[in-house]
Design a binder for these strands. Sequence first.
DNA 1: CTAAACCCTGAAGTCACTATAGAGTCAAGG
DNA 2: CCTTGACTCTATAGTGACTTCAGGGTTTAG
Lengths: 131, 131
Amino acid sequence: MRIGELAKLTQSPVETIRYYESVGILPAPVRDANNYRHYSNVHLRRLGFVRRCRELGFSLEEVRALLAMIDGRHYSCDEVQEAAATHLADVRVRLEDLRRMEASLSELVASCSGGKNADCAFLEALFESED
Amino acid sequence: MRIGELAKLTQSPVETIRYYESVGILPAPVRDANNYRHYSNVHLRRLGFVRRCRELGFSLEEVRALLAMIDGRHYSCDEVQEAAATHLADVRVRLEDLRRMEASLSELVASCSGGKNADCAFLEALFESED
DNA sequence: CTAAACCCTGAAGTCACTATAGAGTCAAGG
DNA sequence: CCTTGACTCTATAGTGACTTCAGGGTTTAG
C-alpha cells in the first residue's frame, strides 16, 4: 500500500510516517518505480504498535526501546513489565500535577465574580506572593 | 536586585528570566554600570504572576494575553474569567486523556505476568489491531 | 486534457525552555 | 597583588515530536 492508505489505516498524518522513517522508528520501505513508498502489512503492524504506544504516553525513546526488545527477540516479559511500570509511575505523577492544576484553577475561576469592573479576584490571587 | 536574587525569590532559573525578556513577557530592566540587569519590585511582582500562571498550565501566549489586559488597564472581570474558563476546559480535556492513559496502562501492566519467557501479554495487546 | 488529489525532498518553524561556548565582573582569602 | 570561585553577559544551538512550507513530480477522475 502507499503512504496515504497506511496513514488512513493507522490514523496518522502522512508527515508523521515519513518522520518516523527519518528517525529510525519505522524501517524504510521499498520504493515503486515512481519513487513512491510501498508498505507491507509488517509496516502496518509496526506503525499500529507505535501509535498505540504513543496513545499510552510512551515517548519515542521508550517506543524505540520496546521495539529494540522485540526486534532483538531476546527480551523477557519481566523487562517489558518493568519498562511499562516505570512509565506508568511517570504518568501518575503527571496526572497528580494536572489534578492539582485543575483544583486550583477551578477554585480561582469560581472566586471570580465576573461583571464589568476591573477588580478581579482571579488576577488578585495570582499577584499575591505567599513565598 | 540582580538576576540571581530575582531567580531565587521566584524559584525560576536565571536563563528563563532572560528568556522571558527576550520574548517580551518581562520588560527589559535598567542596567548597572557593569551591564548587569537591575530589577525592581515591579519585575518581581510580574515574574511571580507569570510563574503562577505557568504553574496553572497557561501557555506563554495566554499569559501574554492576561498581561496585555492588565497593562492596558481596560479589562473586565468577565474577560479574565472567560480566558480562565477556556483554559480550565482545556486542562480538563488533558486530564481526561491522562486518566484514560493511566487506566489502560495499569490494566496492561497487570495483564503482564512477568517472568523470563518472551510471551508478553502487554506487547501482544499493543500489536492487536481492533480498528 | 486538465484539474484535483496524491506523492517526493529538504529545510524551517513550533513551544518553552535548557545548555553550551566564550568572555567579563566582583568579593574574599592568601 | 593575585587568584579562585561565584556571579553576570551575549549569541547560538539543542530538546521532543512533530508540523508547515516551498517547490517540485505523478496519478486518476471527469
